[in-house]
Simulated scan of single mutants.
Amino acid sequence: MKRLTHLLPLLASSMLLFGCGMLGAQEDVPPADTAETSSESVDTTDTGADTSDTTDTSKNEPEDLVEYYKPHYPDHRYEFVGEGNEFASYWMYPQYVTDTHIQFAMNNGGTQTVRVYEYTENELREVFVRNETYFRENFIERLDQLESEQPEEIILQGPLEVGHSWESPSGSVSEITDLRAPVDILFGSFEAVEVTTTRDDTTTRQYFVHEIGLIKSEFENADGSIVTSELERAIEEPETQTIQVYYPDDQALGLDTSQMELSFQTNDVTREVLAAALKDIPDYTGDGLIGPNVTINYLYLNEDGRVYVDFSRELVEEMNAGSGTEMLILQAIVNTIGEYYGVEEVVLTVEGNPYESGHILMEAGQAFEVDHSQVNE
């Protein structure tokens, strides 16, 4: 199992080559003083690609490396099937993309990891990894404030020539070992660029194709056992997450719960998706947990382990509730957001100021706690 931890970063890292060209709206950066440091399945037929024509990698120039591998399938989930290990099959989804970075979520059935990559005209590099991440957040915006859980890994580097090699900060050594390696997989038949990476006593071979990216990986352990993962399909559909939502019961005496499915396309902003969900809880008989004109100004998990969420002034203005109901609404919001991020404390503010109404007054930096004492059985 220890050696498997070397395999997964290499498999996941190379998926950077999907989605480099997608641009769109990004999460808003929270004010500096608020933080501590603050479907359709795609295959080789419907993509329009003629897989009978092999890619002429001999014409590739170093400065064209990223453009050469830029894909044309935004908002797709890429599914890999594998053998040799229970985690060899996985899917990846491009969550956020800028002109210099891309963030992927990777799920292998056992855990979900978020990985951020930086790309230049001549290099693709994994710069941030966060394991066990089941919420959606744009980490690209806060890279200078965050610490990666794994050292940086150089995924691909020009020039694309057989024999070109590089060493990553992680300690692995990679070399381009073939420009026309024949690969037959479920997704199609290709001639691929082969990159061989060694680390300690293990070897990983990865295969990349023009406008598709990584199509296959082979991980060979010291004992000769091999774990293989290969691209099966790319499905055009949103990334979905199931969230537990809380809301006052009919008598406003406690909290009821239900589950909702959040849907995200690439570059969708979490605070906007979550705000829309809080306004339209199917099982809630009220007008919505928050008013129709309420917006979330910023929402993020801070390094202090607390979630910071700032609402527009309409949160208070449109609440129209007595003190008991108001406290239930706030507790429902805190429980919903806190559980989504997996934290115990939520700092809830309005227009950057501590929450204040005719019934409740919070102090600067004071957090609401996730509390289930009023949740109905």
Rank of each mutant, 00 (worst) to 15 (best):
R3H: 11
R3W: 09
L7R: 15
A12W: 00
M15F: 01
F18D: 02
G19M: 03
G19W: 01
G19R: 01
M22Q: 04
L23G: 07
L23Y: 13
A25T: 05
P30L: 04
P30C: 05
P31M: 13
P31D: 14
A32L: 12
T34C: 08
E36M: 09
S39P: 05
V42R: 00
T44R: 08
T45Q: 14
T45L: 13
T47P: 00
T47S: 14
T47F: 05
D53H: 13
S58M: 09
K59Q: 14
D64K: 05
P74I: 04
Y78M: 02
F80S: 03
V81G: 01
E83N: 13
G84L: 11
E86G: 02
A88C: 09
Q95G: 01
T100M: 07
I102N: 00
Q103F: 07
N107S: 13
T120G: 04
E121T: 02
E132G: 02
R142D: 04
R142E: 07
L143Q: 03
E147Q: 04
E147D: 13
E149R: 00
L156M: 10
E167C: 06
E167P: 00
P182C: 10
L186I: 09
S189I: 11
F190E: 05
E194P: 06
E194N: 11
D201P: 02
T202F: 04
T203M: 06
T204H: 08
T204G: 06
V209F: 10
I212K: 01
I215P: 00
F219C: 06
N221M: 15
E230S: 11
I235M: 07
P238Y: 07
I243G: 07
Q244M: 13
Y247S: 02
P248F: 13
D249Q: 10
A252N: 04
A252Q: 01
L255R: 03
D256A: 14
F264P: 05
T270V: 13
L278T: 02
I281C: 06
P282H: 15
G291N: 08
P292C: 07
Y298D: 07
Y300P: 00
R306C: 09
F311N: 03
F311E: 00
S312F: 15
R313A: 15
L315A: 08
V316K: 03
M319C: 06
G322D: 15
G322I: 15
L328Q: 08
I329Y: 14
Q331R: 11
V334Y: 01
T336Q: 06
E339K: 14
E344S: 12
E345W: 03
N353E: 15
P354G: 09
Y355L: 14
S357R: 14
G358D: 06
G358I: 05
M362I: 07
M362D: 06
E363C: 06
E363F: 08
Q366P: 04
A367N: 04
E369Q: 12
H372Q: 10
Q374A: 12
N376W: 08
E377M: 10
